[in-house]
């Protein structure tokens, strides 16, 4: 169970490489890089460390902006923010979604409709990078036992 599978090793290695690159650009990069490489070596040598994961909030928040509060009230009454955070839609598609959800009970003041559509279109357009979802915690260590 403690032996990491190939996939985990592979992914760990590639992500670690990119983090080192980033650290090199940060202030005081050289010292941090050395400290980091040492810690990384420790991590790679200690499979148990990878079982710990940063705990995240069960539900996410909508991004800051003039409509954040109103969007939170209108949308998150029924579902959590991740349903929105993962969408990548054009303005016409967001318009259809907002009107559908309003019909389904989302409380949107008609005076706020356009601003809400703008807020969603600006933050969650097809040009934005894909949303990176969290994982549920892995108490059984399944990611290590999968082959």
């Amino acid at each position: 169970m403690l032996k990491p599978c190939g996939n985990v090793e592979e992914r760990r290695f590639s992500a670690a490489s990119s983090v080192i690159d980033d650290a090199g650009f940060s202030p005081g990069g050289r010292i941090l890089r050395h400290a980091f490489i040492a810690l990384l070596a420790l991590a790679l040598a200690s499979p148990f460390l990878t079982q710990a994961q940063k705990p995240a909030a069960a539900t996410a928040d909508l991004p800051a902006g003039p409509m954040q509060a109103k969007a939170t009230t209108a949308c998150l009454e029924c579902h959590e923010a991740r349903i929105i955070l993962q969408q990548r839609l054009t303005k016409p598609a967001w318009t259809k979604e907002v009107d559908k959800m309003t019909k389904w009970g989302a409380v949107v003041d008609p005076a706020d409709r356009d601003a809400l559509i703008d807020y969603l279109s600006a933050n969650f357009s097809p040009e934005k990078p894909a949303y990176d979802p969290p994982r549920t915690s892995d108490k059984a260590g399944s990611r290590k036992s999968s082959k």
Partner: peptide, 24 residues
């Protein structure tokens, strides 16, 4: 260290191990 590793954030979800959380 674990933050630096690719597992990223994780959310407590009893009985559902290592699943991709599309929505809570």
């Amino acid at each position: 260290l674990t933050w630096a590793l690719p597992q990223g954030e994780s959310v407590e979800f009893p009985g559902e191990d290592g699943m991709i959380l599309r929505s809570f």
